[in-house]
Design a protein around this nucleic acid. Sequence first.
DNA 1: GTCTATACCCCGATAGAC
DNA 2: GTCTATCGGGGTATAGAC
Lengths: 198, 198
Amino acid sequence: MEIPTESAAQRRFDQKAEQILTGATQIFLQRGYERASMDKVAKASGVSKQTLYSHFADKEALFVALVDKMSRRRLEEAFGSAPLKGEPKAVLSQLARTTLTQLSADEDYHDFVRLMIAESKRFPGLVEKFMLNVTRPSLLKLTEFLSSPDLNIEDPEATAHVLLGAVVFFMLTQEIMPGKAVIPMEADRLATALVALL
Amino acid sequence: MEIPTESAAQRRFDQKAEQILTGATQIFLQRGYERASMDKVAKASGVSKQTLYSHFADKEALFVALVDKMSRRRLEEAFGSAPLKGEPKAVLSQLARTTLTQLSADEDYHDFVRLMIAESKRFPGLVEKFMLNVTRPSLLKLTEFLSSPDLNIEDPEATAHVLLGAVVFFMLTQEIMPGKAVIPMEADRLATALVALL
DNA sequence: GTCTATACCCCGATAGAC
DNA sequence: GTCTATCGGGGTATAGAC
């Protein structure tokens, strides 16, 4: 139970933190960590730099909070999707198409992944947490599905790496990197080729 | 034909440019573009900052030259490998293992790929050239191989994306990002699972 | 609590001595 | 051509007015 007399002020405080995080997300995703200045974050958030520093100790702390928030958001979206029931190959085909379509459309997520890879050397612990909270659950769910006796796959876990790898490579080369013109590929062709392998 | 009286001076000039590129490579790969300062490049190269600027117009020009050099190097190593002759599945198994081993060991290349992804938004033309000179040839060679009638693959090009995607995802999660502890996978298991799919 | 102003540092790029 | 010294600008973070 919260103390009523504090809750109004607390609510305003949290709300301002959210407001800052929203502005910060825009700046960090667009410009990357180094080129994102605290001045620009303050301006994009509609607060002063001092207010910014009263909510977050420094730039790194702000970045940590931002990654946490983005990871939670992505996790929710990933698990709000298909139930994975029915004839395995048909389900997999649908899952591949849905995933490829969703991932191709989410520009914020492309920027976020680019940021995670870019800063994986400077913030290894943070990126590891991202992989633990986002990548790992996807792999586990996929592994579980590929373990279906109907599919008769010897090493479902390694196969899950292959399938997720194909999807991530697609997103990486077609959207995150400017590869559409150089090595073009269509989501439907990839999905069809994926299912044909199983 | 070159003018003999100039060749000695020219040779010294080119050699110094190489020396600078070597130092610059070390700094850029280690720190990324933004955190790589021209002071540090000069120090790592063993030249003064003025000498640095007499060989390269500015930081961006140095970066362009660096990416060109790294791309050429990677291309040569990729094509100096297996001849891709023999029983298809056996060759593919060997190719997968060799590639995974080589890519896992080359730390400079991990840093380079991280750098290309990180700067893909700021230097799209440069990254596109990298993909054209490195990624595309690998895909083409793999597609050609997967077109073998023995394998009976309906869409070799899309399948090549799947296979290369699996390899890149492995390098990305196990080496470029700190994922070994979170989603561990062994190269041999992945190679086996890959071949089992064909 | 929130704003304006600023301290302090490091960056890329250049000038001038040799 | 090469070095040392420096300029202008922008970065993070903080101090002081209100």
